[in-house]
Structures are given as structure tokens and as C-alpha cells.
Amino acid sequence: MKMLAVFEKGPRLRLIGHLDLMRAMQRALRRSDLPIRYSQGFNPHILLTFAAPLNLGAVGEREIMEVPVEGTVDPAFFLDRLNAALPPDLKILACRAVEDTHKSPMALLRAARYSAQPEGGADDVAPFIGPFLAQKTVPAVKKTKSGEKEVDIRPMIHELSCRDGRIFATLDLREESTCKMELLLDRLYAFAGLETPHFLVRRLMLLGEDGNAFVPLEDV
């Protein structure tokens, strides 16, 4: 059996990297004394995968991880035990048990919803959102391991809006097509002719697909 757990990576931990977070979660699992599974091989490690690494600097409100366990574990018990073993800024919000054959969250992931809070509010950029979305293409330069690559990010943007001084967006997040919130904001402010301000990014939710509609990844 595998556990699908929704967890929060709080503001204090936004500058803790992916590997550090992974290790912190593994240690918490050890402390929890839950029947976790280890890999085979010379240096066994705890089996644990995250749906998607979070950009350094961002807060994760509903991140998702998969934890294979031995036998059957009650999800409510798993949630309580693990929460008792976690530091204050990491918290399990929900948990669901699935069969080992259930596709991994990484494979089911399609998109993510974000918010960004620009320093000094979003009033200046708000009027430009409509015209920005009206563009047929939005060329952007993506930095990849093999160098820089020009891509059109317009088809990766599923939603873009502004409310209460915050910018909200739903963006592609899958292997063949990913647009980071930081890249979108960079293009949006350039379009508006404004200097990109400092902002705090929150990943609000990871999304999978049900038919043609996005649904929370943990429900897929």
C-alpha cells in the first residue's frame, strides 16, 4: 500500500532546498515509527517521492508526496503519527491510501496553481492582464541544463487573474511542458513595461486531470 499525503511547507522553510526537505521528511518518517519501506541494495534508503520539487523561495501550501508502507495503515493514523514527528513548519493536511499499482503523483501531475504577492501590491500590473492574455503567443527564454531555449508559454497559461493585491495563475507542470510562476511574472511585467518587483510566490495546489478538467492531484 502507498500513502498519498498532502503537506504544507511553511514560510520559514521556503529557502530549504528539495534534497534537504526530502531528508527532513525521511527523518520524520523514522521518528514516527510508521511501517515505511526501504529500498533494496547496499545503502538502503526510505522510499519517498514528492510530486514535484518546489522552487527555492516559494511557500508550498498543498504539496504532495507518496510514501510506500508495509501492510495496511489507516490514513488517519498515518496523518496523526507523522504530524507528531514533524517540526512546526511542516504539516500533513490530508492523507489517502492507494494500491501499489496506483500511478505515481509525479506521473499524474498536469499543472499547478500559484499566487504571487508583489511588494507594493499588484494595482500597477492589473490592467495589463487582459491584453497580456489576448496575445496569441508569449515568447520566453527558458534556462535548461543544455542552455537557453526559446519557448511560447502562452499555451501553458490556463488562468491568470488579480485579486486583493495578489496575482493568481494556473500553469502547466508536467514533464513535456512546464512554466514557472517566476517566468510568467517576468514576461507579464515586461509586457506592462514595469520593472519586476520583489514578490513572494506560493504554490497553492497541485493539479491532475479528470476528463478535461483539472482536479486536485490527491483526488486523482
Binding site: G10, R12, G17, A24, R27, P88
Partner: peptide, 14 residues
Amino acid sequence: EQVQKPARYAGGEM
């Protein structure tokens, strides 16, 4: 966000 190894200054450890 601008300094090396910001995790050194985060606190909040278990």
C-alpha cells in the same frame, strides 16, 4: 534570497 546557504539562518528545526 540573495545570500549563500540561506538555510543557515532559517531556524525552526525539529
